[in-house]
Lab assay of single mutants.
Amino acid sequence: LTVHVGNVTYHFDNPEQAEEWAKRMAKKYQGQIHVKDGQFRIE
């Protein structure tokens, strides 16, 4: 699973971990989480 934050990409084996990280990053950067094809993108 991949989480994109700006132009930085993080890889996770565990979906719960990826989702948790995406939520934390979205809160930190006050962005929206977009989920597409098993990838999380924070914008």
Rank of each mutant, 00 (worst) to 15 (best):
H11K: 11
V35S: 05
G31Y: 06
N14I: 09
A22D: 00
L1R: 10
V3K: 00
K36A: 10
Q17K: 12
Y10S: 01
V5A: 08
V8I: 12
Y10R: 05
R41Q: 11
P15E: 08
I33M: 06
W21C: 15
K27A: 14
V5S: 02
G38D: 06
F12Y: 01
D13L: 09
Y29C: 09
G6Q: 06
Y29T: 06
D13E: 11
W21D: 00
G38L: 04
H34R: 08
Q32Y: 08
E19N: 06
Q17A: 14
G6H: 11
E16A: 13
L1Q: 10
Y10W: 14
F12A: 00
R41W: 15
T2N: 06
E43L: 07
T2M: 09
P15C: 15
A26Q: 04
I33K: 01
V5T: 01
Q32P: 03
T2W: 09
E16L: 11
D37C: 09
M25Y: 08
R41K: 08
F40W: 13
L1C: 15
Q32M: 08
K23W: 07
V8L: 10
T9C: 15
F12P: 00
Y10L: 03
K28D: 06
K27D: 13
N7Q: 09
K28W: 08
N14E: 10
K27M: 13
K27E: 15
Q30H: 15
H11N: 06
R24T: 11
H11V: 10
T2P: 01
R41H: 15
T2E: 09
V5L: 10
D37S: 01
E20M: 08
E20G: 05
Q39E: 14
G31S: 07
D13G: 09
P15Y: 15
K36W: 11
V5F: 12
I33C: 13
E20K: 12
A22L: 07
D13W: 08
E43G: 04
H11L: 10
M25F: 08
R24H: 12
A22P: 00
G38Y: 02
T9Q: 07
E20Q: 11
G6K: 05
A22G: 02
V8S: 08
H34G: 03
E20Y: 09
D37W: 01
E43W: 06
Q17C: 14
R24G: 06
Q30I: 04
V35F: 15
V5C: 15
W21R: 00
V35Y: 15
Y29M: 07
A18N: 00
H34N: 09
V35I: 14
D13R: 07
Y29G: 03
K36L: 13
A26C: 15
Y10V: 04
P15Q: 10
D13Y: 07
G31E: 05
Y10F: 10
N14R: 10
M25K: 01
Q39I: 10
T9M: 11
Q30T: 05
V8M: 11
G6M: 09
A18T: 01
A18F: 06
Q39C: 15
R24S: 09
I42Q: 03
D37I: 02
H11S: 08
R41I: 15
I33V: 12
I33D: 04
H4M: 13
H34F: 14
M25C: 13
G6L: 09
N14A: 08
V35L: 12
I42Y: 05
R41T: 15
A22V: 05
V3F: 03
E19Y: 15
Q39F: 05
H11W: 12
A18V: 02
A22C: 06
G31V: 12
G6T: 03
F40M: 08
A26P: 01
A26T: 03
V35Q: 06
Q39W: 04
Q39G: 12
M25S: 02
H4L: 14
V35P: 01
I42T: 03
D13A: 07
V8P: 01
Y10P: 01
Y29A: 02
H34A: 10
A22Q: 02
L1D: 04
Q17I: 09
H4Q: 13
E43M: 05
F12T: 00
E16Y: 12
E43K: 04
G38Q: 02
E16K: 13
G6I: 05
E19A: 12
Q39H: 13
P15V: 12
W21P: 00
F12E: 00
Q39A: 11
E20F: 06
T9V: 14
P15D: 05
L1P: 13
H34E: 08
I42V: 11
K28F: 10
K27N: 10
L1T: 15
E16N: 11
P15L: 14
T9E: 09
H34C: 07
T2Q: 09
L1M: 14
R24N: 08
G6D: 09
I33N: 03
Q17S: 13
F12G: 00
K28N: 03
E16P: 03
G31Q: 06
V5P: 01
K23F: 10
V8A: 12
K28V: 06
G31I: 12
Y29F: 09
V5E: 00
E19F: 15
Q17G: 06
V35M: 12
A22T: 02
Q32A: 08
Q39S: 09
N14F: 09
F40N: 04
Y29V: 08
E19P: 01
E20P: 00
I42M: 01
T2D: 06
K36E: 14
Q39M: 07
V8W: 12
Q17R: 11
H34P: 03
D37G: 03
P15H: 12
V3N: 00
Q30A: 09
H11C: 15
A26M: 05
H4F: 09
E16Q: 11
Y29H: 08
F40G: 03
N14G: 04
V3I: 05
G38K: 02
D13F: 07
A22E: 01
D13M: 09
Q30S: 12
N14Y: 08
Q30G: 15
Q30M: 09
T9K: 07
Q17Y: 10
F12M: 00
R41L: 14
G6Y: 10
K27C: 09
T9N: 04
E19V: 13
Y10A: 02
A22R: 02
W21K: 00
G6E: 05
K27Y: 10
Q17H: 11
N7V: 08
E19M: 14
N7S: 11
Q32W: 05
L1K: 09
I42E: 05
K23Q: 10
G6A: 09
E43T: 08
N7T: 12
V3Y: 02
Q39R: 03
F40T: 03
A22Y: 04
K28C: 15
G38F: 04
T2F: 08
H34I: 15
N14M: 07
H34K: 11
H4V: 14
A18Y: 04
V8R: 14
K27P: 04
E43Q: 06
V35E: 07
K36V: 15
T9W: 06
G38W: 02
K23E: 11
A18E: 01
Q32E: 10
G31R: 02
Q32K: 11
Q30K: 14
L1G: 13
H11R: 09
Q17T: 11
D37T: 00
K27G: 07
E16C: 14
V8H: 12
M25N: 03
W21A: 04
H4D: 03
V35G: 04
G38R: 01
E43D: 08
E16V: 12
Y29S: 03
N7D: 08
I33H: 02
I33P: 03
E16F: 11
N7Y: 10
T9R: 07
F12L: 01
G6P: 01
Q32F: 08
D37M: 01
R41F: 15
F40E: 05
K23H: 11
H34S: 14
V5R: 02
Y29I: 07
E43R: 03
V8F: 13
H11D: 05
F40L: 14
Q32T: 14
D37P: 00
F40V: 08
N7I: 08
G6C: 15
Y29Q: 03
A26R: 02
L1F: 15
T2V: 10
F12H: 00
G38P: 05
V3M: 02
A26K: 02
L1N: 15
K28R: 12
A26I: 04
K23N: 09
A26H: 03
R24M: 13
Q32N: 07
D37N: 06
D13K: 12
G31D: 04
A22I: 07
I42G: 04
N7E: 08
V8C: 14
K28L: 12
Q30L: 06
D13Q: 09
G31L: 13
T9F: 06
W21I: 01
G38N: 07
E16G: 10
K23G: 05
E20I: 08
N7K: 11
I33Q: 03
V8D: 06
E19G: 05
K23R: 11
V35H: 06
K28A: 05
G38V: 02
A18S: 01
I42P: 05
Y10I: 04
K36G: 07
Y10T: 01
H4I: 14
F12C: 07
R24A: 14
R41Y: 15
E20R: 12
L1S: 15
E16R: 12
E43H: 06
E43N: 03
Q17F: 08
E16I: 11
I33S: 03
G6F: 14
R41C: 15
Y29N: 03
